[in-house]
Protein backbone atom coordinates (compact mmCIF):
# COMPACT_ATOMS: atom_id res chain seq x y z
CA UNK A 1 0.00 0.00 0.00
CA UNK A 2 1.21 3.51 -0.76
CA UNK A 3 2.16 5.89 2.01
CA UNK A 4 0.70 9.30 2.79
CA UNK A 5 2.08 12.73 1.96
CA UNK A 6 1.26 15.11 4.82
CA UNK A 7 2.03 18.82 4.54
CA UNK A 8 2.64 20.81 7.74
CA UNK A 9 1.75 24.44 7.13
CA UNK A 10 0.59 27.61 8.90
CA UNK A 11 0.65 30.74 6.79
CA UNK A 12 2.31 32.76 9.52
CA UNK A 13 5.98 32.20 10.23
CA UNK A 14 7.52 30.99 13.45
CA UNK A 15 4.49 29.22 14.87
CA UNK A 16 6.07 25.76 15.06
CA UNK A 17 5.87 24.00 11.66
CA UNK A 18 9.45 22.77 11.80
CA UNK A 19 9.14 21.72 15.44
CA UNK A 20 5.92 19.84 14.67
CA UNK A 21 7.41 18.14 11.58
CA UNK A 22 10.54 16.99 13.41
CA UNK A 23 8.63 15.81 16.49
CA UNK A 24 5.87 13.97 14.65
CA UNK A 25 8.42 12.43 12.30
CA UNK A 26 10.37 11.09 15.27
CA UNK A 27 7.22 9.92 17.06
CA UNK A 28 5.79 8.10 14.03
CA UNK A 29 9.13 6.38 13.40
CA UNK A 30 9.32 5.33 17.06
CA UNK A 31 5.86 3.81 16.56
CA UNK A 32 7.32 1.63 13.84
CA UNK A 33 6.41 3.53 10.68
CA UNK A 34 8.83 4.35 7.89
CA UNK A 35 9.00 8.14 7.85
CA UNK A 36 10.60 10.77 5.64
CA UNK A 37 10.61 14.42 6.68
CA UNK A 38 11.27 16.87 3.88
CA UNK A 39 12.48 20.46 4.31
CA UNK A 40 10.60 22.55 1.75
CA UNK A 41 12.13 25.83 2.90
CA UNK A 42 14.57 26.24 0.00
CA UNK A 43 17.24 28.82 0.81
CA UNK A 44 16.43 28.91 4.52
CA UNK A 45 16.67 25.33 5.68
CA UNK A 46 16.25 24.52 9.38
CA UNK A 47 14.70 21.11 9.73
CA UNK A 48 18.22 19.64 9.57
CA UNK A 49 19.43 21.52 12.65
CA UNK A 50 16.23 20.91 14.58
CA UNK A 51 16.76 17.18 13.95
CA UNK A 52 20.48 17.30 14.70
CA UNK A 53 21.42 16.06 11.22
CA UNK A 54 22.98 19.23 9.83
CA UNK A 55 26.49 17.84 9.65
CA UNK A 56 25.44 14.91 7.50
CA UNK A 57 24.08 16.76 4.49
CA UNK A 58 25.69 15.80 1.20
CA UNK A 59 22.93 16.27 -1.37
CA UNK A 60 19.61 18.04 -1.03
CA UNK A 61 16.13 18.13 -2.53
CA UNK A 62 17.17 20.51 -5.32
CA UNK A 63 19.94 18.12 -6.36
CA UNK A 64 17.32 15.37 -6.55
CA UNK A 65 14.84 17.23 -8.73
CA UNK A 66 17.65 18.50 -10.97
CA UNK A 67 18.88 14.95 -11.44
CA UNK A 68 22.28 15.58 -9.89
CA UNK A 69 21.82 12.68 -7.53
CA UNK A 70 19.48 9.82 -6.76
CA UNK A 71 16.74 10.31 -4.17
CA UNK A 72 18.52 7.76 -1.99
CA UNK A 73 21.72 9.81 -1.96
CA UNK A 74 19.92 12.87 -0.60
CA UNK A 75 18.07 10.88 2.06
CA UNK A 76 19.81 11.06 5.45
CA UNK A 77 19.14 8.24 7.86
CA UNK A 78 18.70 9.22 11.49
CA UNK A 79 21.05 7.00 13.47
CA UNK A 80 19.18 7.31 16.76
CA UNK A 81 15.71 6.46 15.50
CA UNK A 82 15.13 3.57 13.17
CA UNK A 83 13.11 4.25 10.02
CA UNK A 84 13.44 8.04 10.25
CA UNK A 85 14.89 9.87 7.24
CA UNK A 86 15.49 13.51 6.33
CA UNK A 87 15.61 15.09 2.91
CA UNK A 88 17.21 18.49 3.46
CA UNK A 89 16.56 21.70 1.54
CA UNK A 90 19.40 23.47 -0.22
CA UNK A 91 20.72 26.58 1.40
CA UNK A 92 22.03 28.35 -1.70
CA UNK A 93 19.22 28.06 -4.25
CA UNK A 94 16.33 30.39 -5.01
CA UNK A 95 12.89 29.73 -3.58
CA UNK A 96 11.36 28.93 -6.97
CA UNK A 97 14.02 26.46 -8.14
CA UNK A 98 11.50 23.67 -7.57
CA UNK A 99 8.26 23.53 -9.54
CA UNK A 100 4.98 21.83 -8.60
CA UNK A 101 5.51 19.15 -11.27
CA UNK A 102 8.86 18.28 -9.65
CA UNK A 103 7.03 17.72 -6.38
CA UNK A 104 4.48 15.42 -8.00
CA UNK A 105 7.30 13.29 -9.34
CA UNK A 106 9.20 13.30 -6.04
CA UNK A 107 6.19 12.56 -3.86
CA UNK A 108 5.23 9.66 -6.09
CA UNK A 109 8.62 8.13 -5.40
CA UNK A 110 8.44 8.92 -1.67
CA UNK A 111 5.02 7.29 -1.32
CA UNK A 112 6.44 4.00 -2.49
CA UNK A 113 9.24 4.09 0.10
CA UNK A 114 7.66 5.60 3.19
CA UNK A 115 4.46 5.15 5.21
CA UNK A 116 4.50 8.85 6.08
CA UNK A 117 6.19 11.72 4.26
CA UNK A 118 5.95 14.95 6.24
CA UNK A 119 6.58 18.16 4.29
CA UNK A 120 7.82 21.09 6.37
CA UNK A 121 6.31 24.02 4.50
CA UNK A 122 7.93 27.47 4.50
CA UNK A 123 5.97 30.42 5.92
CA UNK A 124 3.77 32.32 3.49
CA UNK A 125 1.57 31.20 0.61
CA UNK A 126 4.00 31.62 -2.27
CA UNK A 127 5.93 29.11 -4.38
CA UNK A 128 7.23 27.04 -1.46
CA UNK A 129 3.70 26.65 -0.12
CA UNK A 130 2.31 25.83 -3.56
CA UNK A 131 5.00 23.21 -4.09
CA UNK A 132 4.31 21.70 -0.69
CA UNK A 133 0.57 21.29 -1.17
CA UNK A 134 0.84 20.15 -4.80
CA UNK A 135 1.12 16.47 -4.02
CA UNK A 136 -0.17 16.41 -0.44
CA UNK A 137 -2.82 13.88 0.55
CA UNK A 138 -3.38 15.43 3.97
CA UNK A 139 -2.55 18.67 5.73
CA UNK A 140 -1.80 19.74 9.27
CA UNK A 141 -2.31 23.41 10.00
CA UNK A 142 -0.27 24.66 12.95
CA UNK A 143 -1.43 27.77 14.72
CA UNK A 144 -0.78 29.67 17.90
CA UNK A 145 -3.62 30.94 20.11
CA UNK A 146 -3.10 34.46 18.90
CA UNK A 147 -5.04 36.70 16.51
CA UNK A 148 -2.66 37.02 13.57
CA UNK A 149 -1.73 33.35 13.62
CA UNK A 150 -5.37 32.25 13.60
CA UNK A 151 -6.21 34.67 10.83
CA UNK A 152 -3.37 33.39 8.65
CA UNK A 153 -4.38 29.82 9.46
CA UNK A 154 -7.86 30.62 8.20
CA UNK A 155 -6.45 31.87 4.90
CA UNK A 156 -4.32 28.75 4.47
CA UNK A 157 -7.26 26.49 5.36
CA UNK A 158 -9.24 28.17 2.58
CA UNK A 159 -6.46 27.54 0.08
CA UNK A 160 -6.23 23.90 1.16
CA UNK A 161 -9.99 23.39 0.78
CA UNK A 162 -9.78 24.81 -2.73
CA UNK A 163 -7.32 21.98 -3.48
CA UNK A 164 -9.76 19.48 -1.96
CA UNK A 165 -7.57 18.88 1.07
CA UNK A 166 -9.33 18.85 4.46
CA UNK A 167 -6.75 20.00 7.00
CA UNK A 168 -6.54 19.17 10.70
CA UNK A 169 -5.44 21.60 13.37
CA UNK A 170 -2.64 21.63 15.93
CA UNK A 171 -2.75 24.50 18.40
CA UNK A 172 0.83 25.07 19.51
CA UNK A 173 2.42 27.18 22.23
CA UNK A 174 -0.51 27.20 24.60
CA UNK A 175 0.30 28.82 27.94
CA UNK A 176 -2.28 27.29 30.31
CA UNK A 177 -1.86 29.94 32.98
CA UNK A 178 -2.66 32.70 30.52
CA UNK A 179 -5.67 30.84 29.15
CA UNK A 180 -6.94 30.27 32.69
CA UNK A 181 -6.47 33.92 33.45
CA UNK A 182 -8.42 34.84 30.34
CA UNK A 183 -5.48 36.49 28.60
CA UNK A 184 -4.99 33.93 25.84
CA UNK A 185 -7.44 32.43 23.37
CA UNK A 186 -8.37 28.93 24.46
CA UNK A 187 -8.07 26.11 21.95
CA UNK A 188 -11.86 25.97 21.97
CA UNK A 189 -11.96 29.61 20.85
CA UNK A 190 -9.56 28.80 18.02
CA UNK A 191 -11.53 25.74 16.93
CA UNK A 192 -14.78 27.75 17.06
CA UNK A 193 -13.34 30.36 14.72
CA UNK A 194 -11.60 28.02 12.29
CA UNK A 195 -14.14 25.19 12.51
CA UNK A 196 -11.81 22.39 11.49
CA UNK A 197 -11.02 19.12 13.19
CA UNK A 198 -8.58 19.33 16.08
CA UNK A 199 -5.61 16.96 15.92
CA UNK A 200 -3.79 18.02 19.06
CA UNK A 201 -2.78 20.63 21.61
CA UNK A 202 0.80 21.50 22.50
CA UNK A 203 1.88 23.66 25.41
CA UNK A 204 4.73 26.10 25.39
CA UNK A 205 7.47 23.89 26.78
CA UNK A 206 11.06 24.73 27.69
CA UNK A 207 12.05 21.24 26.59
CA UNK A 208 11.44 22.32 22.99
CA UNK A 209 14.14 24.94 23.31
CA UNK A 210 16.54 22.44 24.89
CA UNK A 211 15.68 19.93 22.18
CA UNK A 212 16.43 22.50 19.48
CA UNK A 213 19.74 23.25 21.20
CA UNK A 214 20.89 19.66 21.28
CA UNK A 215 19.18 18.31 18.16
CA UNK A 216 17.64 15.52 20.21
CA UNK A 217 13.94 14.95 19.42
CA UNK A 218 11.64 16.25 22.15
CA UNK A 219 9.65 13.01 21.99
CA UNK A 220 12.70 11.25 23.41
CA UNK A 221 12.84 13.53 26.44
CA UNK A 222 11.27 11.82 29.43
CA UNK A 223 9.17 14.46 31.18
CA UNK A 224 8.32 16.75 28.32
CA UNK A 225 4.65 17.70 28.13
CA UNK A 226 5.04 18.79 24.53
CA UNK A 227 6.83 15.52 23.76
CA UNK A 228 3.91 13.57 25.20
CA UNK A 229 1.45 15.62 23.14
CA UNK A 230 3.41 14.87 19.95
CA UNK A 231 3.48 11.15 20.72
CA UNK A 232 -0.30 11.21 21.11
CA UNK A 233 -0.80 13.23 17.92
CA UNK A 234 1.31 10.69 16.07
CA UNK A 235 -0.91 7.93 17.44
CA UNK A 236 -3.99 9.77 16.18
CA UNK A 237 -2.40 9.92 12.72
CA UNK A 238 -1.42 6.30 12.98
CA UNK A 239 -4.54 4.22 13.48
CA UNK A 240 -5.92 5.70 16.72
CA UNK A 241 -7.96 8.69 15.51
CA UNK A 242 -10.18 8.64 18.58
CA UNK A 243 -7.46 8.90 21.22
CA UNK A 244 -8.80 11.62 23.55
CA UNK A 245 -7.12 15.02 23.41
CA UNK A 246 -5.98 16.16 26.83
CA UNK A 247 -6.83 19.78 27.61
CA UNK A 248 -3.73 21.41 29.11
CA UNK A 249 -5.86 24.14 30.64
CA UNK A 250 -8.26 21.81 32.40
CA UNK A 251 -8.07 22.48 36.14
CA UNK A 252 -5.89 19.75 37.53
CA UNK A 253 -6.80 20.05 41.18
CA UNK A 254 -8.66 22.32 43.48
CA UNK A 255 -5.43 23.27 45.20
CA UNK A 256 -3.81 24.38 41.96
CA UNK A 257 -6.85 26.45 41.14
CA UNK A 258 -6.77 28.05 44.55
CA UNK A 259 -3.06 28.75 44.57
CA UNK A 260 -3.41 30.23 41.11
CA UNK A 261 -6.06 32.58 42.41
CA UNK A 262 -4.02 33.57 45.44
CA UNK A 263 -0.89 34.33 43.47
CA UNK A 264 -2.91 36.35 41.00
CA UNK A 265 -4.33 38.42 43.84
CA UNK A 266 -0.99 39.12 45.42
CA UNK A 267 0.36 40.16 42.04
CA UNK A 268 -2.39 42.71 41.67
CA UNK A 269 -1.73 44.06 45.15
CA UNK A 270 1.96 44.54 44.50
CA UNK A 271 1.41 46.52 41.35
Amino acid sequence: MEGKIVVVTSGKGGVGKTTVTASLGAALALQGKRVAVVDMDIGLRNLDVVMGLENRIIFNIVDVVQGKCKLKQATIKDRRINNLYLIPASQSDEKDTIKPENMKWLCNKLKKEFDFTLLDCPAGIEQGFKNSIEAADEAIVVCMPEISSVRDADRVIGLLYSRSITPKLIVNRIIPKMVERGDMLSHQDVVDVLSIELLGLVETDENIVVSANTGLPVVMQKDSKAGKSFIEIAMRMNGHPDLPIEDPTAPRSLWKKLSGKISRKSKVQIS
Partner: peptide, 28 residues
Protein backbone atom coordinates in the same frame (compact mmCIF):
# COMPACT_ATOMS: atom_id res chain seq x y z
CA UNK B 1 31.28 17.74 21.96
CA UNK B 2 27.84 16.21 22.48
CA UNK B 3 28.87 13.70 25.13
CA UNK B 4 30.41 16.05 27.62
CA UNK B 5 27.20 16.64 29.51
CA UNK B 6 27.50 20.38 29.14
CA UNK B 7 24.70 22.95 29.06
CA UNK B 8 22.44 22.57 26.07
CA UNK B 9 23.17 26.14 25.04
CA UNK B 10 26.87 25.31 24.77
CA UNK B 11 25.95 22.42 22.48
CA UNK B 12 23.77 24.82 20.50
CA UNK B 13 26.61 27.31 20.06
CA UNK B 14 29.01 24.70 18.79
CA UNK B 15 26.45 23.18 16.44
CA UNK B 16 25.66 26.62 15.15
CA UNK B 17 29.29 27.30 14.27
CA UNK B 18 29.52 24.05 12.33
CA UNK B 19 26.23 24.66 10.59
CA UNK B 20 27.31 28.10 9.39
CA UNK B 21 30.50 26.65 7.94
CA UNK B 22 28.62 23.76 6.40
CA UNK B 23 26.02 25.97 4.74
CA UNK B 24 28.75 27.83 2.94
CA UNK B 25 30.21 24.65 1.45
CA UNK B 26 27.33 24.42 -1.00
CA UNK B 27 28.62 25.07 -4.48
CA UNK B 28 26.62 26.39 -7.36
Amino acid sequence: LMNRGEDSKEVAKKRLKFALVYDKLEIK
